[in-house]
Design a protein around this nucleic acid. Structure first.
Length: 192
DNA sequence: CGGCCGATCCACT
DNA sequence: GTGGATCGGCCGA
């Protein structure tokens, strides 16, 4: 079943990032459904988090989406060529988000393989936030999409997550955030 | 308006 | 381990 709105409205974005491991992310782009089990996430804790685009209450046309009520997508272009997909959380006015960094593909494998166009395609692993959006067809123009809709959605299919398989570490690529770059906000589900 | 820079990825050493 | 690709967003003038 799809994740309930209340899942996204909770105020602990770090807890939500952990809870998202083992949940399923799906897209329906042009009638083709692709998706997988979420295996890697990072929490971005809003206005006090130096790594967040919303740090210091920065509200621009791009980051404004994060200030909305949880349960929608925040997708933006990074390094001029990669769309990065985030789940917006918390209530209206608090710009929390969770970056989805990796999945284990389970649905639409052929389509995913065609989209990523890499020879060493690993059907057990699709790690990297830029790669997974390409695989699932999520373009940055999808920012603001309701995650309870028919285009992008998340489901709980009772996948059992063994806490012993969760690795918690610091976030990647945010050295500019200084001491906040060391926060244990990255969650990895270590499955085959 | 111009210039700088990035929540990345891949090829190459 | 390192450097280049590549372009929208952001900020300062």
């Amino acid at each position: 079943m799809k994740l309930d709105k209340s899942f996204y409205l909770r105020d602990d974005v770090v807890l939500i990032a952990n809870d998202l491991l083992g949940k399923y992310l799906f897209t329906n782009i042009g009638g083709v459904i692709t998706g997988g089990i979420i295996t890697e996430t990072e929490a971005y804790a809003g206005i006090t988090d130096k790594a967040s685009h919303a740090y210091n209450n920065k509200k621009t046309q791009r980051t404004e989406i994060m200030f909305h009520e949880g349960g929608i997508a925040y997708v933006y272009l990074c390094y001029g060529m990669y769309s990065l997909f985030n789940v917006v959380t918390n209530v209206d006015g608090i710009p929390h988000a969770v970056l989805i960094r990796g999945i284990k593909p389970v649905e639409g494998l052929e389509e995913i393989k065609n989209r990523v166009k890499q020879n060493d395609f690993d059907k057990y692993r699709l790690n990297g936030p830029g790669k997974l959006t390409k695989a699932l067809g999520i373009h940055y123009s999808y920012t603001g999409t309701d995650l309870n809709g028919a285009t992008i959605w998340l489901e709980d299919r009772n996948y059992y997550v063994d806490k012993n398989n969760i690795i918690i570490t610091k976030r990647v690529g945010v050295a500019y955030a200084k001491e906040d770059a060391l926060l244990p906000y990255r969650f990895i589900l270590d499955i085959k």
